[in-house]
């Protein structure tokens, strides 16, 4: 569990985070927000890479500001951009990380490495140099290093960015499995990643907490505001002023999914809101532009 209390971070005159209060309970917790919302800043603070300007956080009851070294023993972290020493094989790298995480016994270390390799399906790559890995394989290695030592809290920043759909699904499932016995904080701007695996979510916007709650509550933010409008192709320019969520072609018509506080057109039909709708509606209501 992570308890964040009044956490702020300033870069020069710009506040990247402003007085954030948030509780991340055990299980998978999604962190959504547009670019520049402060997600990565928050993740780096929680991963003990960045000192907060003010406020504090308790990670599994350990205060972040005064005992960052202890927190490092509790967390696994996968940064947004993950690189690894190219001359090392995956196996060597994981052994190295395991030792750094205090797995001193060589047999225990080997077992620990085998377990995470199995979990992330890295078996066939484990003896190859990390410099030869594809983006997806490298991210799997990244999550493997985060998992080594069985941390109680997993912090993953944009883990599916750049992965192909199959990899993404596999990754989401892996995180979902891990969240059964850990606190997993997943930061992303891909709503579907959260929709499919998180029960609770928080939305950051311009350094502030825009909303925290269940995914259903976030989706509910758009209840009564999601419409389906069918337009002739020639009428499509009229839709430019609407907040379009999606469009698809059906015969000669274009079917638009629109978020609007009021019925955008007489023939518009109300729709059941999705998480993405809720997220977009929330940001629109705050006057921001979703990413």
């Amino acid at each position: 569990m992570i308890e964040i209390r009044g956490l702020s971070r300033r870069y020069g005159r710009r506040w990247a985070l402003k007085g954030l209060d948030l509780t991340v309970e055990a299980g998978m917790f999604g962190l959504l927000g547009p670019n520049g919302a402060g997600k990565t800043t928050l993740m780096r603070i929680l991963a003990t890479l960045l000192p907060p300007t003010s406020g504090d956080a308790l990670v599994e009851g350990v205060p972040l500001r005064s005992r960052p070294d202890e927190i490092r023993k509790l967390i696994g972290y996968l940064p947004q951009l993950f690189q690894v020493y190219p001359q090392m094989t995956g196996g060597e790298f994981l052994e190295y990380v395991a030792l750094m995480k205090g797995v001193d016994d060589p047999r225990a270390r080997r077992r620990s490495v085998e377990e995470v390799v199995e979990q992330v399906h890295l078996g066939e790559w484990i003896d190859r140099k990390a410099g030869t890995y594809s983006g997806g394989t490298r991210r799997r290695l990244g999550i493997a290093q985060a998992l080594i030592g069985d941390p109680r809290v997993l912090i993953v920043d944009e883990p599916t960015a750049g992965l192909d759909p199959e990899e993404r699904v596999r990754f989401r499932n892996l995180l979902a499995t891990l969240s059964l016995r850990k606190t997993v904080l997943l930061s992303t701007h891909i709503v579907s990643d959260i929709e499919s695996s998180c029960r609770r979510v928080a939305v950051l916007d311009r350094g502030e907490l825009a909303m925290a709650g269940t995914t259903a509550e976030l989706a509910d933010r758009a209840r009564g505001k999601v419409w389906e409008v069918r337009l002739a192709e020639s009428e499509l320019p009229e839709a430019a002023s609407w907040q379009l969520v999606a469009t698809r072609q059906e015969g000669s018509e274009v079917v638009c999914r629109v978020i609007a506080a009021e019925r955008p057109a007489p023939e518009a039909k109300p729709l059941e809101p999705t998480l993405e709708d809720g997220y977009l509606a929330l940001l629109r209501a705050r006057g921001g532009e979703p990413a």
Binding site: R44, A47, I75, Q145
Partner: peptide
């Protein structure tokens, strides 16, 4: 080569003095 490279930030989260 690592400490100052963004891609190696994981190094800073390891419990190493």
């Amino acid at each position: 080569r690592d400490v100052l490279r963004q891609g190696y930030e994981w190094l800073g989260t390891l419990p190493v003095s």
